[in-house]
C-alpha cells in the first residue's frame, strides 16, 4: 500500500499487463479506511490500483481518469454526501474523453439517514453509474460479481 497517488501522468496499463483501476473519494469526503480497504480488495481482484485518496476535487478526478484510462472506476463515499456528490461528478466523468463506456461504480453510506432509498439509487444509475452499492451487508459480494461479469481480468 502506498500513499495517495502523486499526480503526475502515468501509463494507462500496468507494466505487468494487469488492468488498471482507479479508487477514489469525492470532493467533500475525508474518510480513508474505506479507500484503503477497497484498494486492497480491488488489487486482490487482479487490478493495478491507483488510489486518488480523500477529498478529490471534481476536476482532479475527471483529469486522472481521463489520463489513466482505467478499466474500472470505484468511487466511495461514507460521509453522507454521496448522493449529491455522486450526481455531480458522474456527468462530468461520462462527458470526458474515453470514459463514456468505462465501468464506473459508487458505494458506501450514501445518505445521512441510513435508510435504503431505492429511488436515489435509481437516480444515480440513470445519471450514469453502472452499479450503486448502498450500505447493505451484501455490497461487497455484489461488487465482486459485477467485476467478474463486466471487467476481464487475465489470470496470472
Amino acid at each position: 500500500m502506498t500513499s495517495t497517488a502523486r499526480l503526475d501522468p502515468q501509463p494507462a496499463a500496468a507494466r505487468d499487463g494487469r488492468p488498471t483501476a482507479v479508487v477514489s473519494s469525492m470532493a467533500s469526503d475525508a474518510h480513508t479506511w474505506n479507500l484503503i480497504f477497497l484498494q486492497l480488495l480491488v488489487e486482490e481482484l487482479g487490478f493495478e490500483v491507483t488510489n486518488l485518496g480523500p477529498c478529490v476535487p471534481d476536476l482532479l478526478l475527471v483529469e486522472q481518469c481521463r489520463i489513466r484510462r482505467p478499466a474500472l472506476v470505484v468511487l466511495s463515499s461514507v460521509n453522507g454526501h454521496g448522493y449529491q456528490d455522486g450526481l455531480r461528478v458522474i456527468g462530468q466523468l461520462r462527458g470526458a474523453a474515453g470514459l463514456a463506456g468505462t465501468p464506473i461504480v459508487l458505494g458506501g453510506k450514501l445518505g445521512v439517514s441510513g435508510e435504503h432509498r431505492a429511488e436515489r439509487v435509481a437516480e444515480l444509475r440513470d445519471a450514469g453509474f453502472d452499479a450503486v452499492y448502498d450500505d447493505r451487508p451484501d455490497a461487497i459480494e455484489s461488487f465482486r460479481r459485477f467485476v467478474a461479469a463486466r471487467v476481464a481480468v487475465g489470470r496470472p
Binding site: M1, S3, T4, R6, T32, W33, I36, P54
Partner: peptide, 10 residues
C-alpha cells in the same frame, strides 16, 4: 500507520 496523506511517510 495507514495514513495516505502525501505528507505522511507511510
Amino acid at each position: 500507520p495507514y495514513c495516505i496523506h502525501p505528507d505522511n511517510a507511510g
